[in-house]
Amino acid sequence: MKNKGLLIGLGIVVILIFSVVSWAVSTYNGIVSLDESVATAWSQVENQYQRRADLIPNLVNTVKGVANFEKETYTAVAEARSKVNEIKLTPQMLSNPQTFKQFQSAQDNLGSALSRLLVTVEKYPELKANENFLQLQTQLEGTENRISVERMNFNEIVRQFNTTIRKFPGSLVAGFGGFSEKQYFEAAAGSEKVPEVKF
């Protein structure tokens, strides 16, 4: 009689342990795949930033040929671009607020230097008739727009990730697995809008 009770008790304990372990495993796996999605979203953001950086030398050369005396403006762009190239952010570094902030401010600086350049060259009608320049301008507009889309997607996935690892039972698994919160892109003043590059 007593044995039977013990057996039942043991069975319940085994079932409990089993369900807790399988819950922990599936939660852990869920976090891992979210972590992977964050890395994917991040690489998309980086791709678009890289694309913008790649367009710049061409743009600067085109502008140089026509508007030679706007030297200050286009050297500012070139400098901002070289700063951007110095900061590489791997997905493992996304939880570091400091490097993330550095990365974002370098990119934002480049963005505003670029839009300043594009506003300055508005004075040059030769550029507006220059097919090469028009194409570069369209590509740049497109890239800025893609950057904002990818940043938005990235923020969305990071939000999911952070919520998952911060909510109560999940946070235990996350702490055990060594996951920590990731950084968001903050909308700097006006960066919600695509920079004005109209002509």
Binding site: Q44, G142, N145, R146, S148, V149, E150
Partner: peptide, 8 residues
């Protein structure tokens, strides 16, 4: 899905 391509 879309990635912000296109023109205005």
């Amino acid at each position: 899905s879309f990635g912000g391509g296109g023109a205005s």
